[in-house]
């Protein structure tokens, strides 16, 4: 069972209190973007084997959106962080690097 700490209220939230929001840090393509970029924004996801950044909502709790960094293979949680960011913070990247050296390569 997946358990994530909600950074908004501090609760250790069970998976069944949460609603998944898919891959995080997408660039929202809109009018003026190419058809390819818009299609990619709507439909194409990384679906990696390993480190993954995700959006979650504490739906049956404080109701807030937040981010989580997880491993899709082992389901290890590297950390959670607030929604108000367009990329993972340094401490999350450091936590991942400690557990998965060279993961970005």
């Amino acid at each position: 069972m997946l358990t994530l700490r909600c950074p908004a209220c501090g609760v250790m939230a069970d998976e069944t209190e949460l609603a998944p929001g898919g891959e995080a840090h997408l660039t929202r393509e809109g009018p003026g973007s190419t058809d390819e970029a818009f299609e990619a924004y709507l439909f194409l996801r990384k679906n990696p084997r390993g480190v993954h950044f995700e959006r979650w909502r504490h739906a049956m709790g404080c109701g807030k959106w937040f981010h989580a960094a997880r491993c899709t293979v082992t389901l290890e949680v590297f950390g959670t962080y607030p929604a108000q960011t367009s990329g993972p913070p340094e401490e999350i990247l450091a936590a991942i690097e400690a557990r998965r050296p060279g993961w970005q390569g």
């Binding site: 609760v11 939230a13 069970d14 069944t16 209190e17 049956m60 709790g61």
Partner: peptide, 19 residues
């Protein structure tokens, strides 16, 4: 509910929104 209702995690005066 999946919320931890043990005395340590859920003392008197504690409120949880949950399922």
């Amino acid at each position: 509910t999946p919320a931890d209702l043990s005395e340590a995690a859920f003392p008197v005066g504690c409120l949880r929104r949950t399922r």
